[in-house]
């Protein structure tokens, strides 16, 4: 096996690790590599994905314990040095808990877990993960979470919007960010955001579950293609 090594972090309770592994493996030139939470080195990976699930059971608060694991210290340093880091679902929660992304993810507004097909609008193509999309392109990734309600103070939200760091928004089929199209009550229908430099992106929906028309969408491929190029 050869290719650009992309690390996939496994915490106890991560459950989308294999889906992300398969997604990375599906991109020509990318080599998925496991990163166990107890490890203290990244082993030369060039990009990192924090996969979905319930790291440490999500006890206390989603992502709250995971950020203190040995591997996270290395992930944080990697992100700060400009390395591409993608956090999906629980991975997004961990990135906010670790302070790599602003805001927090609270219990869904409807209080129930929600799993459905979801339309998203790509509101920033200025990240490695979205550069292959057209501005405002509509894509379909499934959502599946109980704590995906993105909150931040108005100042932060204004800043994110002003700097073009809102990457994905929940929208309806026509591309409108309506309340009905919002599955969890997120502020301003925000589904995913980037850090200042754009190399760290977190989103609640699952591009890793949108890799084949067999399961309904292959829009996620572009996200992983972008990750590979940034890592190469």
């Amino acid at each position: 096996m050869s290719g650009v090594p992309i690390g996939i972090v496994r915490f106890p309770g991560t459950n989308c690790d294999q889906d992300v592994f398969d997604a990375v493996a599906a991109i020509d030139g990318a080599l998925p590599v496991w990163l166990w939470h107890k490890e203290t080195a990244l082993g030369g990976v060039r990009g990192i994905v924090l996969a979905g699930g319930f790291a440490y059971g999500d006890y206390l608060r989603a992502g709250a314990i995971a950020r203190f694991s040995p591997i996270m210290e290395r992930v944080i340093a990697f992100a700060r040095s400009g390395g591409p880091v993608l956090g999906i679902c629980n991975g997004f929660q961990i990135l906010t808990e670790a302070g790599l992304l602003p805001g927090a993810l609270m219990r869904n507004a409807g209080l129930s877990f929600v799993c459905r097909e979801q339309w998203l609008r790509v509101d920033s193509t200025d990240t490695p993960f979205t550069r292959h999309f057209r501005p405002r392109q509509l894509v379909r990734f499934p959502v599946a979470h109980g704590e995906g309600n993105y909150v931040a103070d108005d100042e932060t939200l204004d800043l994110l919007e002003g700097e073009g760091r809102v990457v994905f928004r929940y929208v309806d089929e026509a591309g409108e960010a309506t309340p009905l199209a919002n599955p969890n009550g997120s502020a301003r229908n925000i589904a995913g955001i980037a850090d200042e430099r754009g190399n760290v992106v977190g989103l609640m929906p699952h591009p890793d579950r949108a890799m084949s028309l067999l399961v309904g969408s292959e829009d996620g491929r572009e996200v992983f293609r972008g990750l590979l190029e940034a890592a190469a």
Binding site: Q18, G52, F113, V114, C115, A144, H206, R209, M211
Partner: peptide, 11 residues
């Protein structure tokens, strides 16, 4: 069924 994750494992 919207309360059940029915996609994980992508099968």
């Amino acid at each position: 069924w919207e309360q059940y994750d029915h996609h994980v494992q992508t099968n």
